[in-house]
Simulated assay, not measured.
Amino acid sequence: MSVVAALDNARSELFRALGHPVRVRVLELLHDGPKTVRHLLEATALEGSGLSHQLAVLRGTGLVVARRDGNTVEYSLGAAEVAALLLAAREVVAGLAAGQGQLLAELRVEHTW
């Protein structure tokens, strides 16, 4: 596999990991600092197995890392750039939403019957 293909694969896996609302929510929760599994369970209202699966996907891409302290597992963002990625995603979504709002306003003005 070429370097370009490997990079394309890595980016694709990153975006695939970001393609689930629960995983995005977990990343947002971790943006404020490390959280225990218990806290993540309470905040996401998932069952343990469901959260475990989502965390495994995030760990697999390196977006989150786990640290065990006795019986407690604590998760945190895998790199500071993940926080920047979340912020960039918010800005893109906000910009798209604003653009859609403008388009709807223009359609209403043009098509007043």
Rank of each mutant, 00 (worst) to 15 (best):
A43Q: 15
H39I: 09
G50E: 15
S12A: 14
G62N: 02
L107I: 06
V64F: 06
V22F: 02
P21L: 01
G19Q: 05
D32K: 05
V93Q: 08
L7A: 08
R68E: 12
L41D: 03
L58W: 02
L55V: 10
T72L: 14
V4N: 02
L18M: 15
E74D: 01
H31S: 15
T61R: 11
A88D: 12
Q100V: 13
V73W: 06
P34Y: 05
R68F: 07
A17W: 12
A66I: 06
L51F: 09
T44L: 06
L87S: 13
A84P: 01
L40V: 15
G99N: 13
F15W: 15
Q102A: 15
V26C: 00
A6W: 01
V26L: 12
S76D: 15
H53Q: 09
V93K: 09
V65C: 05
W113Q: 04
A17L: 11
L29K: 10
E106P: 00
W113E: 07
T44F: 08
R38C: 02
R108L: 13
V64Q: 01
A80H: 10
E42H: 04
L30E: 04
L63T: 09
L51D: 03
S12R: 13
A84T: 06
G19A: 13
G101N: 07
L77D: 01
T72K: 15
V64N: 05
L7I: 13
L96N: 05
L55R: 04
L41R: 11
V82I: 06
Q100R: 12
L27D: 01
A6M: 04
L14H: 07
H53N: 03
A43H: 14
Q54S: 14
E28Y: 08
A43K: 14
F15L: 15
T44I: 05
V82N: 08
L46P: 01
V92D: 09
P21F: 08
Q100P: 00
E42I: 05
A98I: 03
A83N: 01
V109W: 07
A80C: 01
G62F: 10
V82M: 10
A5C: 03
Y75N: 09
L51W: 02
A66Y: 05
L63G: 07
V26N: 00
E106V: 10
P21S: 14
L46M: 13
A79F: 11
A10E: 11
Q100S: 03
S52W: 03
G62Y: 08
A17N: 06
L55S: 11
H20E: 13
V92W: 08
R68Y: 03
G70C: 10
A56Y: 02
G99W: 14
T112R: 13
V3Y: 12
E47L: 11
V3R: 09
A45T: 12
L55F: 09
A45C: 02
L46N: 09
A66F: 11
S49R: 10
A6L: 07
R108T: 07
A84H: 10
E28D: 10
A84F: 02
A83C: 10
L41E: 04
L87K: 13
A10N: 07
L30H: 03
